[in-house]
Amino acid sequence: MATKSRTLPLSKRGLNFEMLMWIFTRLSALAMYALILFGVIGALIMGARNQMSFADILRWGFMPNSTHVQSTNVPDLAPWSSFLWNLTATLLLLVGTAHGVHGLVVIADDYVTSPRGRLVLRFLSIVTMISISIIGAYVLWAL
């Protein structure tokens, strides 16, 4: 028996908020892979191979912020706190926050089923996402 395709064409699925967030979750995961790889390669080019352990390289990769390499043997923090790395870290922060807060909404939707509760949660999640993004960007650029 020929198996019928279970995927509907895009025109029948519609393009709503859930669909957009579904694809955003997947694409932002790929983007985070790319940004972390970029951070790790950058660290190796800047001499991490001789100045820090692999655990510290990964710590830098997960968030390329110069305070994450302060405790290592890096001689000069200046190249690690350049505009490029602040920008990479901010991108990772924004993508990661949006991905993570949407994940929390997906989990909450499994337990909160009343329309009113979901509305309150959506409002709270937007407030959380914006405030964590702003606080995180402040920490990256100003501290």
Partner: peptide
């Protein structure tokens, strides 16, 4: 996957707030 995501969200949220407060 769900436990890992929750764990990371809680950790990273607290970590950002902690580095903001210092």
């Amino acid at each position: 996957h769900r436990i890992g995501g929750l764990g990371m969200a809680i950790f990273i949220g607290i970590h950002i707030l902690a580095s903001f407060l210092s």
